[in-house]
């Protein structure tokens, strides 16, 4: 069985490196991973959708059930935008500073994708289970983007700094 010694040594060495890397990098060091997806059952989640608007109505910043805004949601695939990247911008950003907002507008290629006179309403979508175990999904407007401007939701952000040109 000596012929297997080398196989064993390399495999166990990589296994040890694997354990070291995932334990010190929150479970992820590609391709090593603890594969934690869907490990937390029942936890609330946050994703994102983009709605296209022709006009801005007074209720534009209102929180609505996702079903209500669903007809206006556009396909990000059709615009060559990675939907998961967009969802992660909406769910993982803690501080929306100018750099992050410009990165968001750049990823969406807003100046190219948004035609004149139209707006994209960038919306956070939050889902959770109620105590009665029914699923609730809400759409929370975050930013209104035109071909050259981004406006923050004044109900969430400081209204003194609510607009910039990207």
């Amino acid at each position: 069985m000596a012929k297997y010694t080398k196989y064993k040594r390399i495999l166990l060495s990589v296994l040890a490196i694997n354990a070291l890397l995932v334990s010190t990098h929150e479970g992820e060091f590609w391709p090593f991973s603890i594969f934690p997806m869907f490990s937390q059952g029942g936890h609330p989640w946050t994703r994102g959708v983009v709605q296209e608007l022709d006009t801005i109505t007074p209720d534009v910043w209102d929180v609505k059930p996702l079903e209500e805004v669903r007809p206006g949601v556009i396909s990000l695939d059709a615009h060559g935008i990675d939907q998961i990247d967009y969802a992660n911008f909406m769910s993982k950003t803690k501080v929306w500073d100018q750099k992050r907002l410009r990165a968001l507008a750049g990823m969406l290629q807003a100046s190219k994708n948004i035609s004149g006179g139209k707006y994209w309403l960038l919306t956070r979508v939050e889902g959770f289970l109620t105590e009665e175990d029914s699923v609730v999904v809400n759409a929370i407007p975050m930013f209104l983007v035109s071909a050259d401007t981004l406006i923050k939701n004044p109900n969430i952000f400081n209204p003194q700094k609510d607009e910039f040109t990207h």
Partner: peptide, 22 residues
């Protein structure tokens, strides 16, 4: 618990809605 799958179906349906528009 099946309710967890309901919540994940809602999450992934939102991803499909965002990617495909429906």
């Amino acid at each position: 618990d099946g309710a967890h799958l309901w919540l994940w179906i809602a999450e992934k349906s939102t991803d499909v809605l965002s990617a495909e528009g429906s």
